[in-house]
């Protein structure tokens, strides 16, 4: 049996907000195999974003194990973590606040290479341009600033920046929830192609079970800080085991008029 790329064991995260102590992640265990897309699905406030932040080292865990490729990275400080940075990258939800408004696009994409001093200046720029091309951005737009781009294009910039160091694991935190349906499909397809071509593994965080069902390999349902159900995407959708999953699926309006209206929408049932 091969080791999973990411293994999380009994992870707890709690921190203080004002005077209150909150405990958004309550003993989570999960694993992500190489080349796999694991979707983490839950409603707002279920702790899924805190979990992502903890894996990325933006939030310290209170206890538990986060193992990346066999190395425990939970609670490493920023210097120790720097070694793992090129391997784990992230795409953020909001395409407007996730790019520094004062940097040019090619600068934004090149920056990770600058920091880790990979190659000389001209190779870095070349890599940035290759990456732009790979995500479907014209190279001659490299001198523009982020505000000159649409939401979908900015998300492509974010993806290029995240992938320029050729990571193994990409954490996508609601990468398409701020986008329109037609653009959402473009970005999802791009992520799918990139995964196929670059051998990536995705931890895909979403509130949209219907969306992840179409392209994730496995789904982990998160509810109130805990994982309540995991399984192959198809199976979770068609045969949900946990009460929360069932309630969520019952409330999802499938865009299909031939299907009966979900019970949660029907007033005749009252």
């Amino acid at each position: 049996m091969t080791n999973p790329l990411l293994r999380i064991d009994d992870l707890h995260v709690s921190f203080r907000v004002g005077k209150e102590m909150i405990h958004p992640v309550r003993g989570i265990s999960l694993h992500l195999n190489r080349g796999e897309t694991l979707a983490l699905v839950g409603e707002s406030g279920c702790g899924k974003t805190t979990l992502a932040r903890t894996i990325l080292g933006l939030q310290a865990p209170s206890s538990g194990v986060i193992e990346y490729d066999g190395n425990d990275i939970a609670g490493l400080d920023r210097f120790q973590l720097k070694r793992f940075r090129p391997h784990i990258q992230c795409v953020f939800q909001d395409p407007f606040s996730s790019l520094n408004p004062r940097k040019r696009v090619e600068q934004l994409i090149r920056e990770p290479l600058d920091i880790h001093q990979i190659g000389d200046k001209s190779t870095r720029l070349k890599r940035a341009h290759q990456m732009m091309e790979r995500v479907g951005l014209p190279i001659d737009w490299g001198r523009r600033f982020p505000h000159e781009f649409s939401g979908g294009q900015r998300q492509r910039i974010g993806i290029a920046r995240a992938l320029v160091m050729q990571p193994d694991l990409l954490i996508c935190d609601e990468p398409v929830s701020a986008l329109d349906v037609s653009i959402q499909a473009q970005i999802i397809n791009l992520l799918w192609e990139l995964k196929r071509d670059m051998g990536l593994s995705y931890l895909f965080i979403s509130h949209d079970l219907m969306l992840v069902e179409t392209f994730a390999d496995r789904v982990a349902m998160m509810y109130k800080g805990e994982i309540v159900e995991t399984g192959p995407a198809r199976q979770v959708w068609s045969n949900p085991q946990h009460e929360f999953t069932r309630r969520m699926i019952d409330a999802i309006p499938v865009p299909d008029v031939t299907r009966p209206t979900p019970p949660a929408f029907r007033i005749d049932a009252e």
Binding site: E43, S44, H207, L209, R247, M248, D250, A251, I252, P253, P262, A264, F265, R266, I267, E270
Partner: peptide, 10 residues
Amino acid sequence: DVTVQAQIMR
């Protein structure tokens, strides 16, 4: 959230 959405629409 989707469950709340369903309640509001209903």
